[in-house]
Design a protein around this nucleic acid. Sequence first.
DNA 1: CGATATCTATACCAACGAGTAAAGACTATG
DNA 2: CATAGTCTTTACTCGTTGGTATAGATATCG
Lengths: 210, 210
Amino acid sequence: MSLDPEIPPSPFRSSQERQKERILKRQAVLQAAVRMFNERGFHATSLDEVAASLGVTKPVIYHYLGNKDQVLFECVRLGLSQIREAAVAARAQEGTGLNRLKAFLRRYAEINMDDFGRCVIRTGDETLSPESRREFRALKGEIDREMREVIAEGVADGSLHAPDVRLTAFTLAGALNWPARWFNPEGRDDRREVAAAMVEILCEGLRCRV
Amino acid sequence: MSLDPEIPPSPFRSSQERQKERILKRQAVLQAAVRMFNERGFHATSLDEVAASLGVTKPVIYHYLGNKDQVLFECVRLGLSQIREAAVAARAQEGTGLNRLKAFLRRYAEINMDDFGRCVIRTGDETLSPESRREFRALKGEIDREMREVIAEGVADGSLHAPDVRLTAFTLAGALNWPARWFNPEGRDDRREVAAAMVEILCEGLRCRV
DNA sequence: CGATATCTATACCAACGAGTAAAGACTATG
DNA sequence: CATAGTCTTTACTCGTTGGTATAGATATCG
């Protein structure tokens, strides 16, 4: 693969290198899978096709990931962990609750335009096996709680107005989830710009105030 | 079924009554199908199950609707036509653009909490056959255009602030689509209240203004 | 009554795709 | 070198399900 002139490519790998390669291959499977899931939908994507897109065969996928359900679950887990990190980062910031919320929301929106984030949104709970579904819901619930927390902090410090925190969180999340459906990575829209603009719309509202 | 004492139930139906019954049965199939699609997902729902839930067998469905794709397409078509009606009704109203928009959005949200509206949102384009998909997209495009039109009118008459109409429409639609995923018809939330509250959040924004 | 159209069920087919068994190639290690 | 472990392929099973052929039932109409 790589033609790095620094390191002469020895055919003998250390066990560390082997371990690394294993993880890399696993990731490659997930990447290929998530792309196809997002494009064609989970059920319309066969593992044969995923494997073929990597130039390998189906049992390879079963070697690195247990079954189709796990492939999907790993994809959404990756997406959700990105969002979780965003929440943690935002909450660690200085400033008003409103500012922390805006930072979180911008990142949240950006992730939802990326492969794994899109997969999180496009995956309905029904799609996963009962066990994965429970885990999936739990993880999403954490994100939701995190978002409500930030909102509540903003209400507490007077920087934002939200009589119904739960409904506010749903509204914001919905608006920023939707790009997972319409955003076209090949188009000319820039993720960051779109994210920032949407957050601005949500924070400022529609009503004109002159 | 009905024990209406006014009309003695004659076993002989006129051709009009037969026609009516046919339409009723067709609708019943769609109703049963949309419920299951929303609950389990399209691919996880077999037509055998849909038929069984009505106490009939699969060929009945094929008698009233051509194939599975058409069953789904009719469901989303029904949902989209409701939204279209809402748009027409809202645009016919008096008042500022903001007011017309709010009326439209409230109804839009309500429909998205009902069976067929939910189906529209939960159905990804990939799910439909190529022809149905094109039609589906065209219909959604019309709704989108309608929404942008109302927004533009509000901007024109100065009742609302929306520098980027397209992005504003996406943001609003996304927020109000999301209940199709989380709203529980069996819960204690009231459709109308939820819809009105969400629209209020969107119009007023989050930032506190004292 | 006989012919025709509508409606529904039984029984079936074909395709597709998830998952597996088995075996071969290659690597590491005692 | 031999043995064990890892990685990958070929070739298969098997359940599910969309869709259909056929035939029987019922009703309509000439």
